[in-house]
């Protein structure tokens, strides 16, 4: 069952990135940390912040969509839960951003657990529909539960995060470093999860659920785990969003379109990859900016691009399968080397 080999113009680029992963990351990393000193404009900084934020959101959904293969159309719901929980705790109860953000992520994770429970009875597409309903219901609760969420007016004067007395803002680079940090930690976490028993298990479930079951995998438990992890990351991103949006959030910041936008980041960048989340986010965030001169045409073209992408590169822009050998755990490598040595001695 070999896939048809199609001409892949990106092949040299793909292997280049694969090969020089480490030096490339260091170079890019150093540059990224230095960005606020390079005299970028406010608009540019804001764009960068949004790119990293959506990369993080993409990574959150990716755990669900890219690893275990479950489509969610309600991630804006988790995003909202994280944002509102953190915002309410910091404004009404005077918590710091840091504790508020963790609480926001945890509440989102808890709701993710509850939303994952129907996996016991529903599968695939039906579960997708439940996620869609979930997003809408979260919105309803935000609008309706006025005593807590302030309804359609939203929450105002959310304080900015403080670090040892230093206030993080957009202009002093604080917002930027914060999201750079959060998204990097998320990326590392996604990487270690993916390369551990849990990650392999999730991907095995996506590839063939029955075969996974016959390997003794408790598929339901792992799908719920994916929901929880995904919701946690998305909730954390939401908490971050609540402080960078001029101290103000309202239900309209979390409507269905945002769920679609997060989904698009994952699809366009490349499901299952981490690099793809950054790229997909950069592409989607910059698109409306770069093509501002097209006015409303840009949304038509955006739709057209999605359609064309699915036709010609459904795995996403950076969605290739790594051609590198399997990365052996350090101790396994050592043991193998010793074995080799023993052989040659004999």
């Amino acid at each position: 069952m070999k896939e048809k080999k199609s001409l892949n113009l990106l092949a040299p680029f793909e292997s280049f990135v694969d090969k020089f992963k480490v030096p490339l990351s260091i170079l890019v990393g150093a540059f990224l940390i230095a960005v606020p000193f390079l005299g970028a404009s406010r608009v540019a900084m804001r764009n960068l912040v949004m790119i990293f934020l959506y990369a993080m959101l993409g990574m959150g959904l990716n755990v669900l969509l890219g690893y275990v293969g479950q489509v969610s159309l309600g991630h804006a719901g988790f995003y909202a839960i994280g944002a509102y929980t953190s915002a309410i705790l910091t404004t009404t109860y005077g918590w710091s951003f840091w504790t508020g953000a963790i609480a926001g992520a945890c509440v989102a994770a808890l709701i993710g657990f509850l939303l994952g429970l129907p996996t016991l009875r529903l599968s695939g597409t039906y579960l997708t529909i439940v996620t869609l309903g979930f997003g809408e219901i979260v919105l309803m609760v935000l609008r309706q539960w006025e005593s807590v969420t302030n309804g359609n007016y939203g929450i105002r004067s959310i304080p900015v995060p403080e670090l040892f007395g230093w206030e993080l803002t957009l202009s002093n680079g604080g917002f930027y470093w914060l999201i750079l940090f959060l998204s990097t930690v998320t990326a590392i976490a996604c990487y270690t999860i993916k390369n551990s028993n849990a990650g392999r298990t999730l991907i095995a479930i996506k590839e063939d659920e029955l075969a996974a079951t016959m390997m003794g995998i408790k598929t339901t438990r792992y799908k719920i785990l994916a929901f929880v992890v995904s919701a946690f990351i998305t909730g954390l991103a939401g908490a971050y969003y609540s402080v960078i949006n001029n101290g103000y959030i309202e239900p309209n910041n979390f409507v269905f379109n945002y769920s679609i936008q997060i989904l698009s980041v994952v699809i366009v960048g490349g499901m299952g990859t981490i690099r793809g989340m950054y790229f997909g986010s950069a592409l989607l965030m910059m698109f409306p900016q770069v093509f501002r001169f097209l006015n409303q045409w840009r949304f038509v073209i955006y739709g057209l691009l999605l359609v064309l992408m699915m036709q010609f590169r459904p795995q996403g822009a950076l969605g290739w399968q790594s051609t590198l050998p399997y990365k052996l755990p350090r101790r396994a490598k050592k043991a193998l080397a010793e074995r080799e040595k023993a052989k040659t001695v004999q």
Binding site: L65, V71, T125, I260, L263, S264, I267, M271, F299, V300, Y302, G303, L304, L305, L306, V307, M309, M310, Q311, P314
Partner: peptide, 15 residues
């Protein structure tokens, strides 16, 4: 993959 169709319909609705 099924999701390609789903995203395609999203794209079409945008258009």
């Amino acid at each position: 993959i099924p999701i390609a169709s789903l995203i395609t319909t999203v794209g079409v609705s945008f258009i």
